[in-house]
Structures are given as structure tokens and as C-alpha cells.
Design a binder for these strands. Structure first.
Lengths: 243, 243
DNA sequence: GAGCAGTGTAATGTATACACGATCGCGAGA
DNA sequence: TCTCGCGATCGTGTATACATTACACTGCTC
């Protein structure tokens, strides 16, 4: 990471995923330049990159804004991602996973089990789970030996992160469920059951999508309710949601 | 299309797909700026966009170069695309296609039939087929109502174009085969057979991929043979293939 | 002769000034 | 009072100059 544009891009991506910018808000290039202590040129390069990743919207002569996704759209993202992760899992089985890749997946499973059974304590379960998940699916993707698939999945994984980071912490129940699915997927992979592994992986992601979408719908309902209450009070709604 | 960056981007994309630049060659920003009669700024914006589309490679401090794909990588692209087009077709059936969408697909089929049976004459069958194909799959994608899926597919469709444009014209046999597959897919969609439609669409794209990859392998063999002959002659090989 | 260091050149990365377009507010007229 | 139009202002689009990096070539040393 040598150029300023790259540094800005990384920091901005993190801050967007962290939820620092309110959804739909416009990003002013001059302000960002001042904030990062660089000129507008690397800022524009970073914004262009983030727009290509789907985190920002770009309108000619109107600049960049934080992209928002409806629950419906998020479901579509997870459905696409499910198809791709399913394919990756099948290709991993067909190519054969290396011992190192299998070991990494096993380690992800073991560590999750340790945390779930309270044999081990983690300060932030959300961060922990995020890492574990990355290991597990990263190993599968690596075994798939399909660069384009990896590229498409990278573009499909970062967007949901924006929204799942909105929930303070993952439900322990949800993690336990996902953990069981991981175990089953690894079992299918180990037994070289390509079609079964594909179906399981696809369903695994789809379930995760349903969970996120459910949370988003709850959130939207609460927001709508709060807005209605505010209107009834005659006061201004607390925060603009969309531009 | 108002900004210069957009115009440059469109023109450059077309020229890359047309195969104007030799594979792997580096794109000099100053030269491009002179060629398009603009400054380096919109050139850099266009290059950044094309890199995000997968048509160019970017290396910090080393600029952009025309990306090359091996036959193996191309197969991976088509495998991913097959999974996505399959998903799109299934979602189209599940959502239900409108009469207009069905009519467009039917029209694509009818016009192809007219050309194949010589009832109609087309100057450039490759261009004709390209349009027909776009109609057909575009209608399905529209019916799928999945923005992210559409976005991923856009990124997966343009890359093979670079290589399929290398073959002077599509085989009429290949078009006839693909046509039959289109007929079967539309039949499955009309009868609301979601799973069958998904399988057929997936296989349809996979077959197209095998065709392109086969041509690429032939091409690679020829190139390797020519290079070997040139080396035997003691003269320099005709063209550098990769950087 | 081989290897390494230093320098020069060409290309990219960045800063900055200016041009253009969009948007908002104010005022005039119906 | 409402609407239309015009100008002011803010922000993005573009050009250009400068900084910095990478690479190749040359000359020196071992």
C-alpha cells in the first residue's frame, strides 16, 4: 500500500463499513481532502474505486454518495452470492482441497466450538466470528482455483458487511447455526460429495441472507414507526434516511 | 454521456473489445491523452473504470495494461457466468416474466430462425447474433429483478467479448445449437419450470464457454507452433504475447 | 568479466488553478 | 401569491505543473 489513493481508499472503505457516514449522504471531495490531508486527486481515485465496489453511488456532475440497499436488494445480493459460493464449493471439491486448506477450515470450526462452549473467551464475538468466517470461506475459494469467481465474490461480500455491522453483535444462536452448517459443509467436502457440498454452501449463504434481511426489515419498521411518531408530535424526523 | 472521462471510457472499451491493442500491452497515459485530445485526468478516470471492469490490469506506479486471460481463466469466467445466468433464469420464472419480455425472447428466436433458414440475409452474422443474444438474455435478466445479479453479469459478459471478437465470425453450427437451446429455455420458462430453466440456462452458457475456450486453445497452439518455427529459423518471434 | 552503485530519463502520482455545470435564493412580473 | 427567470455560489470536471517512483544504462570496483 504505497500510494495515497490506496491509503485513502482503505480508510474510507473501513469507515463506510463501520457505518460512520449516514446512508445516502453525499461525500464532498474538498472536505474529504481536508480530512485526509491530501489533495482532491487521490480522493477522487479512491471514490472511483469504492464506487466500482458498489459501496458508493456516482452521478456525473453530482459526485459520490453512500449507497443504500433495500432489504429486497440485499436479498438479491445474498441470492447471487449463494449461487457463487455454491459454485466455489463444488469446484473446490472437484479440484481437491489441499491438506493446508482443510486444516484451516477445521481450525475455524475448532475455534468457533471453543468460543461457543465457553472454553475460550473473546472480547468481541462479532469481530471474532467475522475472521473465522473469512478463513473458512477463503479456504474454499482458494481451493476453487477460479480468479474471476474470487473477484465476483469479493464484490459481493463487502456490501453486506456495511449492514451486518449495523447490528451490534451477531446472535450467538445465529453463530451456532452457521457453525453447524460449516461442519456439515466440511464433511461433504472431505467426502468429496461435490453436489451435496454445493447445495449446502448455497443454503448456508441463503440462510445468512435471510437473517440479515430479517434484521433489516425490523430496522426499517422501527425507523418508519419512529418517523410516524415524530410526525405526530409535530417535530422534525430525527435523521434523513435517503437523499 | 456528458463528461470527457465517460466518452473516453466508452471509446477505449470498444477499442479493447475490438482487439485494437495487443494483449498485455501497456497503455501510456500521455499517448492516450494526445490521441483523444484531452488531458491525462479524464484518461486516468477512464482507465480506472476499465480496470474495475476487468478489461485492464493496474499496478501502482506501473500504470495500466490490457489484461489477458488464459483459456483456463476463461473457462472459470464462463463457469461463474453460467451459475449467475442460471440463477437469473430461475428468478425470472419465480417472479413471472411479463408478456413484453416473453415477446422479446420469442422475437429473438424468430429472427434467428429466419437468418438460419436463409429466409433473411444479414451482412454480418456475428454482429446480428450478438444483438439477438443480448435481447434474449437481457429479457431474462430484466425479469429476474435482481440489480446486483445484473451488475455481476455485466462484469462477466464484457470480458469474453474481447476474445470472441477475435474469431472472425461465429460458426453457423454454433449459432444453430445456441438457438435450439434458447428455444428450450423459453419453453421451460413459459411452462414455469424454474429448476429445469435454471439447469438449461446454466448448461447453455457452459457450452458457449467450452466453445470459446476450445477456440482459444487452438489459437494458443497455433501461436506456440508459430513461435517455435520462428525460433528454429533463428529470426525473432513475430509478436510478444505477454509482458 | 561480473556485479553493484549511481545517475538519468520516462512514466505515474499528486497538487493546484481554472472551467463548467447544477442548485438555490432572490426578485420581478403576471 | 405564485411562477418564472436570472444570478450567485458551491462543487465537480479538466488542464497543467510539479513530485516521486521505477527502470535502464553507464561507469566503477572487485
Amino acid at each position: 500500500m504505497s500510494t495515497r489513493a490506496e491509503r485513502v481508499c482503505t480508510q474510507l472503505r473501513d469507515s463506510i463499513i463501520r457505518g460512520d457516514h449516514i446512508a445516502g449522504s453525499r461525500l464532498n471531495e474538498v472536505d474529504l481532502a481536508a480530512e485526509f490531508g491530501v489533495s482532491r486527486t487521490p480522493i477522487r481515485a479512491a471514490l472511483s474505486e469504492l464506487a466500482s465496489e458498489g459501496l458508493l453511488d456516482y452521478m456525473p456532475n453530482a459526485g459520490y454518495s453512500v449507497r443504500t440497499y433495500s432489504a429486497q436488494q440485499m436479498l438479491g445480493i445474498f441470492e447471487a452470492r449463494a449461487a457463487l459460493e455454491g459454485l466455489a464449493t463444488r469446484q473446490a471439491v472437484e479440484n481437491g482441497v489441499t491438506e493446508a486448506q482443510r486444516a484451516l477450515m477445521q481450525r475455524a470450526i475448532d475455534e468457533t466450538e471453543a468460543v461457543l462452549s465457553r472454553r475460550r473467551w473473546e472480547a468481541d464475538v462479532t469481530v471474532f466470528w467475522s475472521h473465522i468466517n473469512t478463513w473458512f470461506h477463503g479456504a474454499i475459494l482458494e481451493a476453487a482455483h477460479n480468479d474471476h469467481l474470487a473477484w465476483l465474490l469479493r464484490k459481493s461480500r463487502s456490501i453486506p458487511l456495511v449492514y451486518s455491522s449495523m447490528f451490534r453483535r451477531f446472535d450467538l444462536n445465529r453463530i451456532a447455526k452457521a457453525h453447524e452448517e460449516h461442519v456439515t459443509i466440511l464433511e461433504a467436502i472431505t467426502q468429496r460429495q461435490a453436489v451435496r457440498a454445493e447445495s449446502l454452501a448455497r443454503e448456508h449463504i441463503y440462510k445468512a441472507g435471510l437473517f440479515v434481511v430479517e434484521r433489516m426489515r425490523e430496522h426499517e419498521m422501527q425507523a418508519a414507526h419512529a418517523a410516524a411518531m415524530a410526525r405526530a408530535d409535530g417535530s422534525a424526523p430525527p435523521q434523513p434516511v435517503a437523499p
